[in-house]
Nucleic acid binder design. Structure first.
Lengths: 226, 226
DNA sequence: ACTACAATACTACCATGGTAGTTATACTAG
DNA sequence: CTAGTATAACTACCATGGTAGTATTGTAGT
């Protein structure tokens, strides 16, 4: 029997399913608490249950799904402990990274930071907050790449997943984009000047920018939280 | 057809296979570079290919296996970049944690640290290095538990996997067990005295204790490294 | 002897069916 | 109407067969 003749353009079926589900969870299209099943997903996405199942396992590993054996699978509620812990780890590591970046940083990646920041200005003028969000992520990612700490960034990305869903909850409206962008620009300046102390201090401020009151948000959207 | 009547005592078949393989990899029974396959493992461990495959995926996620699609699966070589990066992350986070522990730490876990350290003395006298190794891990784990940062420790554990294989290479002989134990004891004292600065400084020293020359080791066992 | 290429033997990947275990539902007794 | 129980309808888990893709081996041509 014909089991799959056309290749999917980007990677395996499993990867495709994983990305699709992860996006839906992070965008809150799949709301916390939603019950899903291998069979249901495999039917809506027109694939067999195997790659779906394997994606479930990976997402459970990353704490975005909770699998109850023989019973069911649920999209994880946003867990404030996880958010707090993610913030803790991120602060410690990013402060260390930006200090490292001040000691040495590859020229070509410095250039990438420059273009990133100027693109941020453009997106801000046009009110393109979706792109701005991604540029923010990219800015920090480049810092880790330049310090040869790619795995570390991946770890942070994973720990940030619960937090980023909150950020999605607040949508574009409430972030202080302009302050954020100017801080990015200033951090880049400190790196070029190799001023580690100031850079670290500013990075700490920068990460606290999104440090809004979680508990009021929890009261506003109680159905999303554990 | 009978597909599995007896329950395995501890958890699912998948978990059992995962633990078995992980142990073999960490103990270097499965040496870096060894080619393995779903079929082979499923036959030797007398299970079907599915749980084996799912364990492979998880171990690949943790960078202990490398899966080449449609081609083969290989036990990861020890990657010095990973070791270095693991050390970086661990230092930053453990220094922050021990400082936190000096601010507040639950009474019962303090007691657990006490018993842990005294057990370490016992094991040292008896030359029980295998247990000592585990007690070392436990000591640090308790610190994270007491600071409500369990996930953070899990992250570190994963990042340490490549490093721990090196530690296994050097076996028991070369570690400075006595210094290590006295440092544990001293760290515990600083926590009780709530002396964050001294605790952090000692923790940094402590983590550098196993900071031996990797490159000579790489020359000694070239077949284990990338 | 050495290269080009076809045949073969692998591999991980995906599809699918059966099973044990859990949960919801229907039914019965009081 | 309620409480308890049998039954049906789920679930994730595991087993297994087929497929596309890769690597190896054998073979023919030079």
């Amino acid at each position: 029997m014909n089991q799959k003749t056309q290749n999917r353009q980007s990677g395996s079926t499993r990867e495709y399913i994983y990305q699709t589900l992860k996006n839906q969870i992070m965008n809150l299209e799949l709301k916390p608490g939603t019950k899903i099943s291998e069979k249901e997903i495999s039917e809506t996405l027109k694939v067999s249950r195997t790659p779906v199942r394997e994606s479930f396992l990976r997402l459970a590993q990353e704490e975005l799904l909770e699998i109850y054996p023989q019973s069911g699978t649920v999209v994880s509620y946003i867990h404030l402990d996880f958010v707090e812990e993610g913030r803790f780890v991120r602060e410690k590591l990013e402060r260390a990274i930006v200090k490292l970046a001040c000691e040495q940083f590859p020229e070509d990646l410095l250039f990438q930071l420059e273009t990133n920041v100027s693109t941020q200005h453009l997106c801000s003028e046009k009110g393109n907050y979706k792109n701005l969000f991604e540029l923010d992520e990219e800015f920090h990612n480049i810092l880790f790449i330049g310090c040869n700490k790619v795995r570390t960034w991946k770890i942070i990305e994973q720990l940030k997943s619960h937090f980023n869903r909150i950020r999605m909850l607040r949508l574009v409206s409430n972030d202080n984009w302009d302050i954020m962008i100017s801080q990015h620009k200033q951090i880049l300046e400190f790196i070029k000047q190799k001023d580690g102390d100031r850079a670290e201090k500013l990075m700490k401020e920068h990460l606290n920018l999104v440090n809004f009151d979680l508990h009021t948000l929890k009261q506003q959207y109680p159905e999303y939280f554990k």
